[in-house]
Design a protein around this nucleic acid. Structure first.
Lengths: 117, 117
DNA sequence: GCCATATATATAGAAAACCGTATATACTAC
DNA sequence: GTAGTATATACGGTTTTCTATATATATGGC
């Protein structure tokens, strides 16, 4: 399943998906509930956009117990990864992708503990 | 008029606009009729998408006689320019943006001569 | 003035994308 | 088995985006 350029940029065209990708690019691997809290969006919305990113081939998922962790797809073409990296760097200061993700993660203390109230 | 990241990627989400930007990134400056022929699309379609790119701030236009030349906006944020460059490079061989643009340009011999039959 | 070329915009309809709500599935602990 | 948490998907409606056709504007040459 090769990822076409058109589909790549279509995937980036939605603000929710873009923020998800920026978070994953910065943090490496996050579960759905962390992403949901970080974006302060409702779960089905986040899940649907993650599903689109997964189907398109931009991200990869991995189950661990009841959590599913997402990350940028390891086999993503180099130049696409660079685009994500550059975008994340350019926007790290300018626009906050998440609302206090660091605090959230320390609270979460996963795996082995519920991370979402 | 600052260009937001969201709007930047929305502009790249359409195949026609993406091909226009790739052509401009490769060739520097092109008039509307060259772009129209290169993409083998109808003129109003190309013109409308160029208008969107202009309004968004991704490209700049310049009139010279009856022709209007477009180029990537010189004041585009550095990282956005890099994204366009990388995308153009990665797709130069893979996907042809244009149908025989070089031949078209030698035929055109502009300015001073009609470039479109 | 008229005619041709180049480009832009307006309009209306079709297609795609996004949304929230509701529901389904999967896992864990008991 | 039941209950609770985490995640995914299905459904229906709204909004956005794209399209093609038609028309308008601008320039150049006569």
């Amino acid at each position: 399943m090769t990822l076409a350029t058109d589909d790549f940029f279509k995937a980036l065209a939605d603000p929710t998906r873009l923020r998800l990708l920026m978070l994953l690019a910065c943090e490496g691997e996050l579960c759905v509930c962390e992403l949901t809290h970080a974006l302060t969006e409702i779960q089905p919305k986040v899940s649907r956009h993650l599903g689109l990113l997964r189907t398109a081939g931009l991200v990869q998922d991995r189950r661990e117990g009841q959590w599913i962790f997402y990350r940028i797809h390891p086999q993503l073409p180099t130049w696409m990864g660079q685009v994500l990296e550059q975008t994340a760097q350019a926007n790290r200061k300018a626009e906050p992708f998440a609302t206090d993700l660091r605090k959230l993660r320390s609270m979460a203390n996963r795996p082995g503990k519920a991370c979402c109230a």
